[in-house]
Simulated assay, not measured.
Amino acid sequence: MKQIECHDVCYAYDGEPVLRHVEFAIAKGEAVALTGPNGAGKSTLLRLLNGLIFPELGSYFFEGQEITKTRMAEHKFSKYFHQRMGYVWQNPDVQLFCSSVAEELAFGPVQMGLSAAEIDGRVQDALELFGLIRLQNRAPYTLSGGEKKKAALASIFTMNPQVWTLDEPLASLDDKTQDWLVEFLQALKEAGKTLLFSTHEERLLKQLADRQLLLSSQHEISFN
């Protein structure tokens, strides 16, 4: 069974088409790069796949279940979906909102209803893995760009989703942090996670992607 399926998906902002007849499927464990020029709809597609917006025409299925506004309004289903699907925004400032890094990392597991011991264990593991121990009591807005990116990644890591979606993951990072992030994404892939990421970076296409989904300036999608 395909993990992610889009069938003839269309979406528009104020009547202006952004996604037009998008059709593709992704299997569990694949690493797929979403490519195309700026304005082609890559970020819009990632938002749709994360249940933040919904197709105006066509349908989107996640693990065999159609994702609709009505379905996502069901608390039990929405909770299940967000445990399975993680989203790392291009700009960490959009994603980080808690008063400290440690609280940020704990937020998702708390919403999942995990025990206090399990939450603490996940947070401590993530703080260590992402090199955030000395920053755990800092407010996220006081961090550097690279530190914010690591905090955003760590906040998804503590939820341990099966699918990771990332919008331009290497954007605005220095070379050292980019190297670290590529290694981290490779480790996720080796662990069997499904990866879908928008990118203009050739190194991600060569080192990580099993295939590409190309969004054209006409907002249509094709396989490479």
Rank of each mutant, 00 (worst) to 15 (best):
Q83I: 00
I133S: 09
S43Y: 01
L57D: 12
N137W: 11
F61T: 15
A102P: 02
E147W: 06
P140R: 09
A40W: 01
S99N: 11
L34C: 03
A40G: 13
A33D: 10
G86I: 03
E56Y: 00
M85N: 14
G131M: 08
I133E: 15
H82P: 00
A126H: 09
N137Y: 11
E103Q: 13
T70Y: 00
K79P: 00
S59D: 08
D120M: 01
Q124I: 00
G113Y: 10
G39D: 03
E128L: 12
I67G: 03
V101P: 01
P92L: 11
M72K: 02
D125W: 13
E56K: 14
K42H: 00
R47Q: 15
L96T: 09
F130Y: 06
S100C: 07
N137Q: 14
K150H: 01
A73P: 03
R122E: 07
N50L: 07
L34T: 03
P92G: 03
A116P: 10
E63T: 15
S59F: 01
F81V: 10
Q124F: 00
F107K: 03
E74N: 14
R71W: 01
P37D: 11
E56Q: 15
N38S: 14
L105S: 05
G41R: 03
Q90I: 13
E74F: 06
I26V: 15
Y80G: 05
L129G: 03
D93E: 15
L57V: 10
G86Q: 08
F61Y: 15
V94I: 12
D120L: 11
V101K: 02
C98Q: 15
V94R: 13
L46V: 04
F81Q: 09
S100N: 03
V101N: 02
P55D: 04
L45D: 08
Y141C: 00
V123R: 02
L96S: 06
G29I: 06
F130S: 02
K28T: 12
H75Q: 15
R71E: 10
P92D: 06
A106W: 13
Q136M: 13
R134Y: 09
V88M: 04
E103P: 11
L127V: 07
A126Q: 11
E128T: 13
G41W: 04
L105N: 06
S100I: 01
E128G: 07
T142Q: 12
F97Q: 00
D120I: 02
L143G: 07
G58A: 11
F81S: 09
